[in-house]
Amino acid sequence: MDKVDKFSEEQLNAFVDGELDSDEKSRVFNESQRSQELDQRLCQQRKLKELVKHAYLDVPAPMRRQDLRGRQGGFWRSAVAASVLLLLGVTIGFYAQEFTGQHYVVRGSESGLVSVESVSHPVVGGRKYILHVASGQSEDMFLALETAQYLLDSAAPGQVNRVEVVANESGLNLLRSDVTPFANEIQLLQENNVVFYACSRTIERLEEKGVEVDLLPDANHSFTALDRIVLRMKDDWEYIKI
């Protein structure tokens, strides 16, 4: 390895990175005052370090397919479809982003009037669970549903536990209408307010391979599994991996 004024490249790197002990640091510093070559090399090292840092200050983020679909009108088509349902007098309830701890219920009437109610959480003290299913094994999927039911049943008197199920990787089979053996069980859980999420990233990957992914009714696919899990965990939901 080349040496500059008796110091190895490793020593010079360590000096620039603050890894030398004080004695050795002083030696390098003192020598750099005397040696223009050493001083120049140290400047180069520092400049290189700053160049690397600068080059990655802003890094490009990936454009997700769901963003592109939204731009192409897919999201808006869904929104229009939802509005049509309301105008036809179908009463639906859905939950908006719950950053504030509130949730919103949209009610439609036969007259077509739509009201949006902001309601506080219906219970105090109910626990919140997010189950993560990444396995397509039947016993694992069954366990996930059993666990979801158990969590609902185990609520304290007067309280209601909230449960979400997030499926990704091969666990997505749980929510694929052409594959899942548990469509009826899932429907029953959904009627008891268990919300199911299909990972949008897993869906993208399958579609890239030419696989057509049809989900069960009301299976949400607006998030990646991780996004949903992290979002919920930030809000003190308990994470359970099946």
Partner: peptide
């Protein structure tokens, strides 16, 4: 340290 040396030498 040795990887750092080689890498930075190449970048330099």
């Amino acid at each position: 340290m040795s990887r750092l040396c080689r890498g930075r030498a190449a970048l330099r």
